[in-house]
Simulated assay, not measured.
Amino acid sequence: MNLRGAERAVETGYNLQSRAVALHLSAHNSGGVAVNDYHLDRAETVAEEIRAAGGKAIAVQSDVTDLDAVKDMVAKIKADLGPVGTLINNAGNMGANPTAEVMKPFWEPDQKSGTSRSVSISTAS
């Protein structure tokens, strides 16, 4: 796959799957990757890894359940990288809870995040 020149955005949480997607996009000639997390330091960790490998990446902080915050995030991505070409919706709030122990208090925030992120980021892009 060659994504030469196409600007990319990864809306992500800090997990192995999100990191792998960001690194994959960067490794296949994307025009840049925006790594998003609620915690900026976690997004910066992945963005720095991409830059260290010679890729173009920015870290952006946003609460994907907040449409105004998402609009601000997308504006920053567009200003730094150009238009969003590919959107990966992969945020969630599950944390490190083993699946067998996940109860309603843990999955309800993830449901809200999952639904909100798809609508918010797609609308703002």
Rank of each mutant, 00 (worst) to 15 (best):
A69C: 09
I121S: 01
D72H: 09
A59M: 05
A69F: 03
G54C: 06
P83S: 03
E108Q: 00
V119A: 10
N89C: 11
A52V: 12
E49G: 07
V74A: 09
I88A: 11
T123M: 14
P109W: 12
A124C: 11
N93G: 15
V119M: 07
K76Q: 13
A96G: 12
Q61N: 03
G92I: 05
A69T: 10
I77C: 13
D72K: 13
G55W: 03
V70Q: 03
D72A: 09
P98G: 07
V60T: 13
Q111S: 05
V64Y: 01
G114S: 09
V60Y: 01
E49P: 10
N97K: 14
A75D: 15
N97F: 06
A53S: 14
S62G: 11
I121L: 09
G82Y: 10
A79M: 13
A53H: 13
W107L: 14
G54P: 02
D110M: 06
P109C: 10
I121G: 03
A124Y: 03
A57K: 08
S120W: 06
A96K: 13
V70T: 04
E48L: 11
T115H: 09
G82M: 02
I58R: 00
G82H: 11
D68I: 07
I121V: 15
R117E: 08
L67F: 07
T115I: 12
S120G: 10
S125T: 14
K76N: 09
S113W: 05
V70M: 06
E101N: 12
I88K: 04
P105V: 06
T99V: 15
N93L: 13
V70Y: 02
N89T: 13
K104E: 15
